[in-house]
């Protein structure tokens, strides 16, 4: 009997793998991001926080190529080489090992959990459409390998009991977990989570925190997450960047950020 093995070697936060430099993004007259710079290190959990409309989701969308920054550069390290890009699209981002989840769950509601997770393997499939349809050539072997990968994720996220359940019938917290599973299926090196705990009750949040940390620990995935729940952010992230009205107002460890006057002002408001 075989048992999945954890990836060997303890991962600790390493060198910078993603550098965002002076990125600006505007929609007409609305400045969503203004000269934002920060970096992400290998294996770290990096949080982006800020009040409503601060530009958090826009930042994430720039990172995986949904939006294109008008100014500034984004550099991604691949092995020893740096790759700089300005206008990659989301397909390229996925091919580069960037996966994400969405603030509003974007799963295929009529499909089962297993099938949804299998869609996350899409970029890893090498056989063409015809081979897959006819179960010809290497298609069968490939399908088996992908199914195994999907099953390992199901085991990891402890969702065996809903494997064959259509996603639309699941409660919200479980759908969020499935979405995380689909993102993991792409075997990302960089995982972007857009409010993974929004709308969850305390227990679901605790579960999700555990899974995020487990993913980070077990697969060594670098994680960038947006979150509103301050308790969660302060507990699980290594470093936090704070945005307000599209500008970076603070960057540092949770403790540093917590005591930063600009951050307190942004969250609580100041008398003008």
């Amino acid at each position: 009997m075989t048992v999945p093995q954890p990836i060997a070697g303890a991962q600790r936060v390493g060198e910078v793998v993603l550098a965002v430099e002076n990125v600006s993004l505007s929609f007409g007259g609305v400045k969503a991001l203004v000269e934002v710079s920060f970096d992400v290190r290998e294996h770290e959990v990096r949080a982006i926080i800020g009040p409503n409309g601060a530009g958090k989701s826009s930042m994430l969308n720039v990172l995986n190529g949904v939006y294109h920054a008008q100014k500034g550069t984004i550099r991604l390290r691949q092995g020893a080489a740096w790759r700089e890009f300005h206008d990659m699209d989301s397909h390229e981002a996925a091919a580069l090992g960037i996966a994400r989840t969405f603030q509003n769950i974007a799963l295929f509601k009529g499909m089962t959990v297993l099938d949804n997770i299998m869609t996350g393997r899409n970029l890893k499939m090498r056989c063409n459409f015809l081979q897959q349809a006819l179960w010809a050539g290497p298609a069968k072997k490939e399908e088996l390998a992908h199914r195994r990968a999907a099953e390992e994720i199901i085991d990891f996220l402890e969702i065996q009991h809903i494997r064959k359940t259509p996603v639309g019938r699941l409660p919200y917290g479980l759908q969020k977990r499935v979405e995380l599973g689909r993102a993991l299926a792409a075997e990302p090196t960089l995982l972007l989570l857009d409010e993974p705990m929004a709308g969850m009750n305390l227990e679901e949040k605790q579960d999700m925190c555990r899974f995020v940390l487990d993913v980070n620990d077990h697969y060594g995935t670098t994680i960038v997450l947006i979150e509103h729940d301050m308790g969660v952010v302060m507990d699980i992230s290594d470093r936090v960047v704070v945005l307000d009205y599209g500008r970076r107002i603070a960057d540092g460890t949770p403790d540093e950020v917590r005591s930063n006057q600009a951050v307190i002002d942004a969250y609580l408001g100041v008398a003008h």
Partner: peptide
């Protein structure tokens, strides 16, 4: 037998 990774495995 045990079901592991969705497949029944046999000893």
């Amino acid at each position: 037998r045990e079901k592991d990774l969705g497949i029944w495995q046999t000893w």
